[in-house]
């Protein structure tokens, strides 16, 4: 078993794809680095914190982008974002079996201000264009820094999110919520609270993650291999159906203050034990109980 959480972006790609099939686009030696960081007097990574390229997953051609969380928390700068957008636009020409986004990011790189914000919005637009062309875009989320900020929105625009329990998904991160709303609203130092709110298990139960896997690169690979070649429809009726589903979910749980109460209301037995279950047991216990997710029949 090789931990996804502990691995670097390059190690994740190496473990995810068929051996020796990955061909990087804009390699480190091309030195396409951030112009903003140097002006601020900070060293700039050779790949600007994201590795992009193409390879094979179980024999199927895929395009892949992997964010490196250890470099500036995976934050999206101008070059970093342009590499992801360029990869998505390339998918329109190459029509791979899927675009795989191995995300680990706090969102926009604040050092790059508007350039980073624009980069994230361009990623979102490109994701929707690729989905409209019926090429699946799949997010793999199990890194140390989770997926937050604008990239949390971008992830939710994709066909499917594969998460481990360790993965986290949200808009404002726990510290941001605590800082702006107060510790009574959300105590970011309470790790159990953070994970049962934004962690992989709750995101699966809420219908936001399509699959929950253990923290193992081989499990991410197996889950992604099932999702390639299967684009969800993206048209007005689908978007309206998703909005209706989200509205219904909000109404159904709006009086609830803690995820554990949601699990109880969904009829999951012994909800207080969910956080300590391994992923196989968790999936068995919650089978048929999770909120309807994108692509499920109404």
């Amino acid at each position: 078993m090789t931990s996804w959480y502990e691995a670097t972006a390059r190690q994740r790609i190496a473990g995810l794809l068929d051996p020796d099939t990955f061909a990087e686009i804009l390699r480190p030696e091309d030195r396409i680095t951030s112009p903003h960081l140097r002006e601020l007097g900070a060293p700039a990574a050779f790949d600007d914190g994201v590795v992009v390229g193409r390879g094979l997953l179980a024999g199927r051609p895929v395009l892949v982008a992997a964010q490196e969380g250890a470099f500036m928390g995976g934050a999206v700068g101008e070059v970093h974002g342009a590499k992801i957008t360029g990869l998505l636009e390339r998918a329109m020409d190459e029509r791979p079996a899927a675009v795989l986004l191995l995300l680990e990011t706090g969102g926009v790189r604040l050092h790059e201000a508007n350039a980073g914000l624009i980069a994230v919005s361009e990623i979102m637009r490109a994701i929707l264009a690729v989905r409209a062309a019926q090429i699946p875009v799949i997010v793999l989320n199990g890194g140390r820094y989770g997926v937050f900020g604008g990239m949390g929105i971008a992830a939710s625009l994709c066909d499917a999110i594969v998460m481990s329990e360790e993965g986290r998904l949200g808009l404002s991160g726990p510290e941001v919520i605590e800082t702006t709303m107060g510790v009574e609203e959300f105590d970011a130092s309470d790790r159990a609270l953070v994970w049962r709110t934004v962690g992989g298990k709750n995101r699966y139960i809420l219908g936001e993650a399509a699959t929950l896997v253990s923290d193992d690169i081989a499990e991410f690979r197996a889950a992604a291999a099932v999702l390639v070649d299967a684009a969800l429809p993206l048209d007005l009726p689908e978007v309206e159906a998703e909005h209706a589903m989200l509205r219904e979910r909000l109404e159904r749980f709006s009086d609830i203050g803690d995820a554990q109460e949601i699990w109880a209301r969904l009829g999951i037995a012994s909800p207080e034990t969910l956080p300590i279950l391994d992923s196989d047991t968790f999936l068995r216990v919650t089978e048929g109980k999770a909120v309807r997710r994108k692509g499920d029949a109404a």
Binding site: R10, P43, A44, E68, A70
Partner: peptide, 19 residues
């Protein structure tokens, strides 16, 4: 190999590119 990258530019760490 024409080029090899090792390590990550993360806190307390470094990346090394050999060409």
């Amino acid at each position: 190999n024409s080029a090899v990258l090792i390590g990550v530019l993360g806190s307390g760490n470094l990346e090394v590119l050999v060409e």
